[in-house]
Amino acid sequence: MKISWFRRQQYVQVKLEQKGEVGALWVKCAGCGDLVFRERIRENHGICPRCGAYFFLTAQERISLLVDESSFQDVSKPIVAADPLGFVDRRSYVGRLKEAQEKTGLRNETVIGRARLGGCPVILAVTDFRFIGGSMGSVMGEQLDHGMGMAARELRPFILVTSTGGARMQEGIFSLMQMVKTAAARRDLERLGVPFVSVMTYPTTGGVLASIASLGDITIAEKGALIGFAGRRVIEQTTGERLPPEFQTAEFAFEHGMVDRVVERRKLREELIHILEFLPVRQSQ
């Protein structure tokens, strides 16, 4: 019984820039090694039809997996990342941002929208891992603040789906401060009795885990998600500890009481609809 819990869910990433005859229509699944028709994976919500491995979902794909058909209305703020520190490592932050925008077609990593789930009006926030690791800088902080503000005003439950490596280092101290900013915005939900459901997907780590993602009324982990504060390598190097293979998986988080449930991707929508049935929904408009 326990063994099956700890079986690691394989995540594979579809390389968007993949070119050529094979890459265009077919992708290789890192789970089973088979070539799978790309469209087939897309239709299947990023799940390999052969072995069940999960591919990364873009924010758009995640949204269409969850919401009632054509109920999503994008209400994200029209903002983009600034470069408050003038940050340059081997490459400039500005260059990285431009590349991420071109690669994803997104302005930034966070999408906020009004939507319905099983008819229930909600505010949904989703982060896109392809955009600089879905990391949290000033833009994500502002978008989540905006989304929670809207949820509080409209008395709609707030659902956050994270796929993020943590803080956006290139924004230095400002990215750290977004942890407090998002927690402060979350307080408004509590004061007004507006429910907040946190959904952790692959990966939910670092500064986002240590702030808003951990502050849900109810916390769900997608099966196979990576959930942890410190990176594996940092832990190994600092402590010399050997890490168990299931370390920092959703199943590990569940075993240790960090999340309420672990849910398969295929069942995530039903699960959220079910949860919402228990919670107060008092939409004001």
């Binding site: 903002i79 983009v80 401060m177």
Partner: peptide, 10 residues
């Protein structure tokens, strides 16, 4: 803290 952060466009 909610005022912290610098974005462009807004």
């Amino acid at each position: 803290f909610r005022g912290m952060g610098i974005c462009e466009g807004a």
